[in-house]
Simulated assay, not measured.
Amino acid sequence: MKTQHNCTRSFINALALRKWLTEKLLPEIMKKPTMSTRDILSEVRKTWRLEISLDKGYAVRRMAFDKIHGTYKEQYARIIDYAAKIARRNPGATSLVTHAGGRFERMYVSFPACTNNFRYCRPLICVDRAHLKGHNTNQILTAVGRDANGQFFPIAIAMVEKECQKIWLWFLGLVLEDLGGRQASISAIMKKQHDPADYVDDCYKPSTFLKHYSGEVHGTNSPNQWPVTGLAPLLPPPL
Rank of each mutant, 00 (worst) to 15 (best):
Q75N: 09
R9I: 09
L54M: 15
S53Q: 13
K85G: 02
P154W: 07
L239C: 05
K191H: 10
N90M: 03
P33T: 10
N224D: 08
H69W: 00
K46M: 08
M190Q: 11
Q151R: 09
T34Y: 14
Q139D: 00
K162M: 14
T220S: 07
K46G: 03
E177P: 02
E23H: 09
T208P: 04
Y76I: 01
A156P: 01
I12F: 14
G173L: 06
L239T: 07
V127I: 15
A93W: 08
P123G: 08
P112M: 04
D202S: 14
N221W: 01
Q139K: 13
Q225D: 04
V109G: 02
H135C: 02
K133A: 10
F153Y: 15
I79F: 15
M159T: 12
I52M: 11
V44K: 10
E43A: 14
L176E: 11
V127K: 06
I157G: 03
V127L: 13
Q193V: 12
L15G: 11
A130N: 12
L234R: 13
V228E: 09
H218W: 10
A84Q: 12
G181H: 13
E163M: 12
F11W: 07
E163N: 08
Y108M: 04
T47A: 15
N149S: 04
H69E: 00
Q183V: 08
A113Q: 07
A59M: 09
M30I: 11
P112Q: 04
S222C: 05
G57H: 07
P112D: 02
D39F: 13
G219V: 05
D147A: 02
N90T: 04
G219Y: 06
L234P: 03
A93P: 07
